[in-house]
């Protein structure tokens, strides 16, 4: 599907600009052009498709579905899957949390949503697909959703409701009042399409600078860092590589957009893919800024338990990836 992009990058860099094929600079630039075009095309396509899905399952509808139906455990999977399809913005995590709590959705189910939402989203899927192909992306998405389910179930079992802030408890009591939720007016599919395409373009535009930075770093490393460079330090044999990578990644925050092209180069230069993906999950899924936002609704103790359980799950999936990929 993307052969023509490679041909174009080859032609542009080696023929038109005239940098020799096989030189560090030539390889770096070629990689940059190829990756940028490919990822931006994928990003637009995937954002567009997700936009269509979202038009039919807006968050308000997801909430009312989850609060009306008791699914004997299935609600965790549902919440986690919904988390994957909804676009994520870290500034929305508190409103989402409160919205779910108000809808009477159990805390564990809310956590399932909250864990998956940043891990699996349109941008992460697009860049992973562009960089690693279908198999790795599918495994990543499946793991992300499973991670949400398992963390959600564990957190739900722990009965941590008393560790929410007073504000949330007050909202809980008010929830009984049952206010009418905002519902947007119905539109036909065709009426919606232009808006969806516009939103998709908007997302592509807003993340492009980060993609370019990520790919530029990746391209520089691709051209200049020798193959197998990292292998000597953190190869598959180093048992502590996964937890170490995850612990370094947790406090950091970067969008999936910026981190994937760098991860791709890590892998090309010899870091096992499981270790790399676990690092990525830790970076995009948990971060200090997110913890600060959550402080409005959770006590520090609850945030610590939440982060702890998710961290352990990510470490497990890192080992798992290393085994199967």
């Amino acid at each position: 599907m993307f052969d023509w992009v490679q041909s174009f990058a080859d032609w542009l860099i080696y023929n038109l600009v005239g940098i020799e094929q096989g030189s560090h600079l030539g390889d770096a630039l070629n990689f940059f052009v190829y990756d940028t075009i490919k990822i931006i095309i994928l990003l637009f396509l995937i954002t567009f498709v997700m936009g269509i899905v979202n038009a039919y399952f807006p968050i308000e509808r997801i909430r009312s579905f989850l609060s009306r139906n008791r699914l004997y455990g299935g609600e965790y999977l549902l919440a986690s899957t919904f988390g994957a399809v909804t676009p994520f913005c870290s500034c929305s995590s508190v409103p989402l949390f409160i919205g779910f709590v108000r809808g009477g959705i159990p805390l564990g189910v809310t956590f399932a949503f909250l864990v998956t939402s940043p891990l699996v989203n349109e941008v992460a899927v697009a860049v992973l697909l562009g960089s690693f192909g279908l198999k790795t992306t599918a495994i990543y998405v499946a793991t992300g959703i499973t991670l949400g389910v398992i963390s959600g179930i564990i957190l739900g079992r722990l009965k941590l409701e008393h560790l929410l802030t007073d504000w949330v408890h007050k909202l809980w009591e008010e929830a009984e009042a049952g206010r009418e939720a905002f519902v947007s007016e119905p539109k036909t599919f065709l009426e919606r399409l232009p808006g969806i395409a516009r939103d998709a373009l908007g997302i592509v535009k807003s993340v492009t600078p980060y993609i370019l930075i990520g790919i530029a770093i990746g391209a520089a490393m691709h051209g200049y860092v020798p193959e197998g460079f990292f292998e000597a330090y953190i190869g598959k044999g180093t048992w502590y590589a996964v937890p170490l990578a995850v612990l370094i990644g947790v406090p950091m925050y970067a969008d999936a957009t910026g981190i994937v092209p760098v991860i791709q180069v890590f892998v090309a230069k010899g870091i096992p893919i499981g270790t790399s993906l676990a690092f990525m999950m830790a970076v995009v899924g948990l971060s200090i800024p997110e913890a600060m936002l959550l402080k409005k609704v959770m006590t520090i103790k609850l945030i610590a338990i939440f982060f702890g359980i998710v961290t352990i799950c990510i470490i497990f999936s890192g080992y798992l990836f290393n085994l199967i990929l």
Binding site: P58, I59, E60, R63, C89, C91, S92, V94, P95, L96, I98, G99, F100, R102, L171, R179, E180, A181, F182, S184, D199
Partner: peptide
Amino acid sequence: IMEYDIMSTPAVVLDGVVKMTGK
């Protein structure tokens, strides 16, 4: 913000009525 029953920001409120959310 949460006094209005919304789940995604930004939201626009016209004379006390939520008109748009999440975009």
